[in-house]
Design a protein around this nucleic acid. Structure first.
Lengths: 126, 126
DNA sequence: CGGAATCCGCGCAGATACTG
DNA sequence: CAGTATCTGCGCGGATTCCG
């Protein structure tokens, strides 16, 4: 049980524990265009292992972010789709992704500059 | 070097590697109201160790999200402040935090329901 | 007060192999 | 195709100690 739901909530800790996960956000994003199958997601996300994909999908299903639907056919067919709540999450994440895309170059430049200066690049005020 | 800047960028992977970090987002949020000192941040964020605080602050400084200013006085005084870019990040993160706060209860309910059903709660279509 | 350095455990996550 | 299971490692991150 690990005492996960006895809190009055509302402090950002719990929020970010849920939402600040790379794979989760990538999956939500990958489901933007409608339902997708397991292998599709695995190929779309690129870099994720089947283990993490399965686990993260489970977590998102558990949280009510997406639904998992099994079609009893051969070969097996499982599709994942955002719930209405999942869609609102997608909208909430969008600004962050846009920000990242817009500032990625700048950040990499800042990193390079930071790494370039030998020591004590911090500015002091006497 | 770890080959971090030879990419044409723009794929969300790199973005989320930078930004989808719990401590980083909490720090950015804690700096919303202007500059803060090290110990202030440590108390504000609650749960973070000095190790993670230092490391995460370094990373954010490296990325140009915040500035670190050392005042040469006794006792030592170091203040951190969001850069303009850092402020835009804060704005971009805000929707995500709001979403989390708004849906936390619902998510916990979904979790409880999910954990309640014994096995195979997934809906199938023949 | 604001770190840096060291030690170390624990859990995340990759790789691989096996099922329905 | 869509998982589950097991093993393993290695890096994140906490606790502690020392320095300017």
């Amino acid at each position: 049980m690990t005492a996960a739901d006895d809190e009055p909530a509302c402090r950002p800790q719990a929020v970010l524990d849920i939402v600040a996960d790379k794979w989760s956000l990538l999956i939500v994003r990958a489901l933007s265009g409608g339902p997708r199958r397991f292998t599709q997601l695995k190929r779309d996300i690129d870099g994720i292992s089947q283990r993490m994909l399965t686990a993260t999908l489970r977590g998102l299903e558990r949280d009510g972010i997406l639904t998992r639907t099994v079609h009893n056919v051969m070969p097996p067919h499982v599709s994942y789709e955002l719930t209405p709540m999942g869609n609102t999450l997608r909208e909430a994440v969008a600004p962050l992704l846009q920000w990242g895309v817009a500032h990625l170059t700048r950040i990499q430049a800042a990193r390079a500059e930071y790494d370039a200066r030998p020591i004590s690049g911090t500015h002091t005020t006497p």
